[in-house]
Amino acid sequence: MGNGYWEHYSHRADMGVRGFGPTREDAFAQAALAMTAVVVDPKRITPKDSVEIVCEEDDDEMLFWYWLSGLLFEMGMRNMVFARFEVQPIEGGLRALAWGESVDTARHEPAVEVKAATFADLEVSRNKKGVWMAQCVVDV
C-alpha cells in the first residue's frame, strides 16, 4: 500500500521500526505500518473505519515521534489496529487519517502490545536520491 516500504530492525529487548518514501509523510505512513506489524500482520486488518490524528510540531523528528505516539494512543483507547495511513502536511505539523478496525483476537492473533515510541534511534532524514526515511525504537 502507499508509496514506499517499511522494515523492522533488531534492538536487544525491543524492536526498531523504519519507513521509507518519496515524501516525509510517505515515510511516516510506512513507519506506522512497520509499527502495526510489530503487533499484528497488517494483511489481516480490514481498513474499514478511520480515525483522524493531528500533530503540531516544527521539528521533523519530534513530529514523527508525536505521530507514532498519537497513533499508539488511538490504538490503546479504541482497541483498534490500523493498516492504511493517509498523512498530509499542514502548517507546523501533519494531519492524518488512520484506517483500521477493532482488534479481533482470533482473526488478528496480535503478538504483543507496543507500550510507547521511544527517542532511541529517532531519525528523520532524506538521502541524496531524495528518499525520506523515518525510524525509532518502540518499547514492547
Binding site: M62, W65, Y66, S69, L72, F73, G76, M77, K115, A116, A117, F119, D139
Partner: peptide, 16 residues
C-alpha cells in the same frame, strides 16, 4: 498498563 505508558510519553518531550 496504558496509564504508565502514557505518563512516560507525556513527560519525556517536556523533559527534553
Amino acid at each position: 498498563r496504558g496509564l504508565g505508558h502514557q505518563i512516560g510519553t507525556d513527560f519525556l518531550p517536556r523533559m527534553v
